[in-house]
Design a protein around this nucleic acid. Structure first.
Lengths: 191, 191
DNA sequence: AAAATCATTTGACAAAAATCAAAAAAAATC
DNA sequence: GATTTTTTTTGATTTTTGTCAAATGATTTT
């Protein structure tokens, strides 16, 4: 088995029992990669070639709109991350994905992943399950984004994903929660 | 082939060439159903038993928060619709799904869909492709939801999905775009 | 068709959040 | 370790949007 892909193994097995053969085929079709703080996994304008899995570290996706840097998502240990629309359609990405802190990742190229699906049916099955999981997650995010007050949105994030509050900057969190830096700072001042 | 499932056939074949056998197996595992204006496809608190496809009509998903009716999504001819988290996890739905106008639908039960995946690998493949498509769509919605002004959000919807503006009420659109009815009314008054 | 109900518009005002500006604190660089 | 740069906080003000209320318009019911 691929060394240091223990979190990925654990995560996959939570979805379904893949069997050792399929699991190893999957792990070995990808590769390990490290990114330093500030390094990009995906750059806007380029096609997202890889799907990544975070073994360690903290990743942020963002795009630029009218000179402003807007956070789309945060990814922690145990999360898959890529620019989904770019990876799926193999079209240029509108988002950047970068390491906020030094990260250990597992990565698989789009082409290799597609080939796996032909080789081993179980792998398309587990990919489908993972996709469903992320669909539910983004649907929840969409609902939370409609929570009325800025305070409610902040408190919701604080409860549901406290690691993000600890690791990300005020500016990064503010754009993610769709409020100004000053508003977020004031919310935090009054707990 | 199942009568009057022409839009479904067309939609599926846009994703991949299924072959007549797989296509018919899929179509015949579901059933046609009509819903009158106001009738529910899914009720909050109950498990979403079916995945629906809109052959004709207009469908709205919404949930209740603090007495208020908040629109989650609109579905038109050519869309799949269910309460995804409920359907996937087979847990009670937090959302209601109902016909805004009389609708012709194709529906498949969760159990039957899962069985199909065992019978015919191609069907899990196309389901995966459809899921990816909807993932990209919801990701776009999340990004649009962070557009700053109420006017921008309205104009974006007007451009991207004009049928919704025509068919839904001011109140339904306002909650979908996360603004008050009065604000939406004023935006429309100033074009 | 009249009455009743519901949806939409408009106006006045209040509340929430953004913006602008400057100070304080923290982090990065030399 | 001092200086520069960046981030965060705090204050004052403006803008945006929500709320309340009433009027108008549309739809449904009797």
């Amino acid at each position: 088995m691929l060394e240091n892909a223990s979190k990925l193994t654990e995560t996959l097995l939570k979805f379904t029992d893949l069997g050792e053969k399929s699991l190893n085929l999957f792990l070995e079709s990808g590769f390990k990669i490290r990114k330093n703080k500030g390094e990009r996994l995906i750059t806007a304008g380029e096609v997202a070639d890889c799907l990544f899995f975070v073994e360690k570290g903290f990743i942020r996706s963002y795009y630029l709109r009218e000179e402003k840097d807007i956070t789309i998502s945060f990814s922690l240990k145990g999360d898959f991350i890529t620019s989904m629309s770019s990876f799926i359609l193999q079209q240029p990405s509108y988002e950047n994905v970068e390491a906020i802190e030094e990260a250990s990742l597992w990565a698989i190229k789009h082409k290799d992943l597609m080939n796996l699906f032909h080789t081993d049916q179980k792998l398309e099955h587990i990919y489908r399950l993972v996709l469903e999981h992320y669909y539910i997650r983004i649907e929840e995010e969409l609902i939370f984004s409609k929570f009325k007050s800025t305070k409610e949105r902040y408190l919701n994030l604080l409860h549901s994903r406290p690691e993000i509050i600890q690791k990300a900057s005020v500016g990064q969190i503010a754009s993610y929660l769709d409020m100004s830096i000053e508003t977020l700072s004031r919310i935090r001042a009054n707990i």
